[in-house]
């Protein structure tokens, strides 16, 4: 790969103070100009991984390695982390209604972020805010900046949120379910916007549960299950030819929008394990239809072809 390596997470583990392990050793890579979709069901640890990169989980014990542009983020003092947060790594959240402070105008909140990281006057900050809002496709941006979050529609709020995240031109943008709270037609607008941002050179890490969203906005995908990445690769390859049984089952469980309607949807039996009773072997083994005796030992995430990695005994050499 000749692209600049932006983010390299190796064996990230996260423990509760009582010892419960939330992340079992997550490994991910992201280059500049790429968008990595992190997919998984609730409890898979996808949001926790994102929050760890932001350093926003002070109560949890992290170990392993998160390299951001060559800088180690695990156990970085908060003072240093604060300079990265918002400036080099920015984040947008699922519900832009609650993510904005309800009692201050949208513009004031974007100005704040600019002024936290740059020595500029209030007026300069506001000029930049209006410019950003305009770039995000907000109509009448100067007026919109004076509005309070509840006075804007859901789509405009999320655009404002993205404008705020991009205000200091971060190298890495983390988006945690950015379209889940939006209607489909508005979601399509936001996904288009995210694709443009990525094409301008930023790295994007998109957390979602929706395979369709990944397909539209990402270049690469990492599938997480129960605190682990089980499969990782270019988005087209993974969607067209999923390797891990969990990825296969997940894709099959989505009802099709065209073609013949199946009598029944293929399902995965049972429930994902809770963090305190994860199997010691392969985490997916209890629900897997290909389970065999080797699954009692947890398979590592191994590269099986150029850019494709999977954690499953079926592909062990």
């Amino acid at each position: 790969m000749d692209a600049e390596q932006l983010l390299d997470i190796q064996g990230l583990k996260l423990n509760l103070p009582d010892g419960t392990r939330l992340l079992e050793g997550v490994s991910l890579r992201l280059n500049a100009g790429e968008a990595l979709g992190v997919v998984g069901e609730s409890g898979s640890g996808k949001s926790l991984t994102a929050m760890s990169v932001m350093g926003l989980l002070p109560g949890l014990k992290a170990s392993g390695s998160i390299l951001f542009s060559g800088q180690e983020l695990v156990n970085l003092p908060d003072k240093v982390m604060r300079k990265l947060r918002g400036a080099r790594i920015a984040m947008i959240f699922q519900d832009p209604m609650t993510a904005f402070l309800p009692v201050r105008s949208i513009g004031a909140q974007i100005d704040e972020q600019i002024r936290l990281h740059h020595r500029v006057s209030r007026r300069e900050a506001r000029a930049r805010t209006v410019q950003l809002l305009e770039r995000m496709g907000v109509p009448d941006p100067a007026m919109a900046a004076k509005r309070y979050p509840h006075q804007l529609s859901g789509g405009l709020r999320q655009r404002a949120m993205i404008a705020m995240a991009l205000s200091c031109t971060p190298a890495l943008l983390i988006a945690d379910e950015p379209t889940t709270a939006l209607d489909v037609t508005v979601q399509a607008q936001i996904l288009t916007l995210l694709r443009e941002i990525r094409e301008e050179g930023a790295g994007v890490m998109l957390i979602t549960h929706d395979m369709g969203v990944v397909a539209q906005a990402c270049t690469h995908v990492a599938v997480m299950y129960s605190g682990l990445v089980v499969e990782n690769g270019p988005v087209r390859d993974v969607l067209d030819r999923p390797l891990h049984p969990y990825t296969q089952a997940l894709l099959a469980a989505i009802p099709p929008l065209d073609g013949p309607r199946p009598e029944r949807l293929p399902t995965i039996s049972g429930q994902p394990p809770t963090p305190d009773n994860r199997p010691t072997g392969c985490v997916f083994a209890p629900r897997c239809s290909f389970v065999r005796s080797e699954c009692a030992v947890r398979p590592p995430l191994t590269e099986i072809e150029e850019g494709r990695r999977v954690a499953c005994v079926l592909y062990a050499a």
Binding site: V186, Q189, T192, Q216, L239, L257
Partner: peptide, 22 residues
């Protein structure tokens, strides 16, 4: 048609979305 087009699918690119909100 617009609703259908807006659904992100694994197998085809997203057509230009509807503009504006409801």
């Amino acid at each position: 048609k617009a609703l259908l087009d807006a659904v992100p699918r694994p197998d085809r690119a997203l057509p230009p979305p509807l503009q504006g909100d409801v």
